[in-house]
Computed example of a mutant assay.
Amino acid sequence: MKNIISTIAFLFITINLISQENNQMKLGDKIGEFSALDDQGNVWKSTSAKSDFLVVYFYPAAMTGGCTKQACAYRDDKASFDELGVTVIGISGDEVKNLKYFKDSYQLNFPLLSDNEGTISKIFGVPANKGGEITREIDGENFLLVRSITTPRWTFILNKERKVIYKNAEVNAVEDSKNVKEIIKNYSK
């Protein structure tokens, strides 16, 4: 009986991994509508982004080193992205309150979405793993920041028709914004 349960568990995990692999977005795939709660607790809908390009970047956890560097680079490049007709959104498995702390602490100027059930990561084929928690000091007070899932750092660029024109599953947090900007500039030529 124990061997049967082990075999069933192994098969379930294997099938799940295969289905995740087959669900990954490829260049040219069209992304359907999606929505999630943003850093203010409001529903953000992909249909509300009327820009020529939508940059969707997944990051592991708010208020951590690489994720902060990546978000701040997007923040610093906002004017350039606005000129190019680009909307940027960051997505993680963090709770809304974590995202609010993150946005306020670093004066981030673009929406952060809470994908705490992994719904959006599934749409994009981004693997989701077990969540986690960290403690951070914010304004002299310690806060426990909990996330339901953790995703790897992946970035997508969608064109006006919301087709994938760029996908990077090996993102360098510091260089991501700069690389994305170059891709969009070259695409627009």
Rank of each mutant, 00 (worst) to 15 (best):
F10G: 07
K160Q: 13
E170K: 07
E33H: 10
I4P: 05
G93E: 02
N23Q: 11
D82L: 13
E170I: 00
D52K: 15
A61R: 10
E161W: 08
D76W: 12
R75L: 15
I91M: 01
I149P: 01
T151V: 13
L27E: 06
K163H: 06
K181W: 02
A36V: 12
I165Q: 01
L99H: 13
I31M: 05
L145S: 05
R153F: 05
I157R: 00
A61W: 00
S48H: 09
L108Y: 06
S121E: 03
K78D: 12
V171T: 02
G32H: 08
F34A: 02
N22H: 10
T64I: 10
L11P: 06
F143A: 12
K78A: 14
P60Q: 08
K2A: 14
V55D: 03
W44G: 12
T68E: 04
S48E: 14
K26P: 04
N159I: 02
K178M: 01
G132E: 06
K100Y: 09
R75A: 12
F124L: 00
K50W: 01
D52N: 15
K178H: 11
N16Y: 06
F53I: 09
R162Y: 06
P152W: 03
T7K: 14
E133S: 15
L37F: 14
L113G: 01
E161G: 05
K130T: 14
K103D: 08
S35M: 09
N22P: 04
K185D: 00
N172V: 01
G85W: 07
Y59R: 02
F81P: 03
N23M: 11
Q20V: 13
V171D: 00
L113F: 02
L113C: 07
L112T: 05
S35P: 00
I15Y: 10
R147T: 02
E175M: 04
A49G: 10
D29P: 02
A9G: 09
S19D: 12
F81H: 03
G66A: 15
K185S: 05
E175C: 00
Y74Q: 11
G132I: 05
A128L: 04
E175A: 09
A49P: 09
S48I: 11
N42P: 07
N159K: 01
F102C: 06
K30G: 08
D38M: 06
P60I: 07
S105Y: 09
F12M: 04
N159V: 01
S105I: 10
E117Y: 05
I134R: 03
F10Y: 09
I89A: 01
I157D: 04
P152R: 02
F143M: 10
D77I: 10
E170N: 10
V146C: 04
N109M: 12
G85L: 07
I134A: 08
F156N: 03
V146K: 10
C72D: 11
E175G: 01
L84V: 07
E21P: 02
R147P: 01
A9K: 07
K103Q: 14
I8E: 10
K189W: 00
D52T: 12
A79D: 15
T68M: 10
T68H: 05
D94P: 11
T119W: 02
F102N: 09
K2R: 15
V146N: 04
N186D: 07
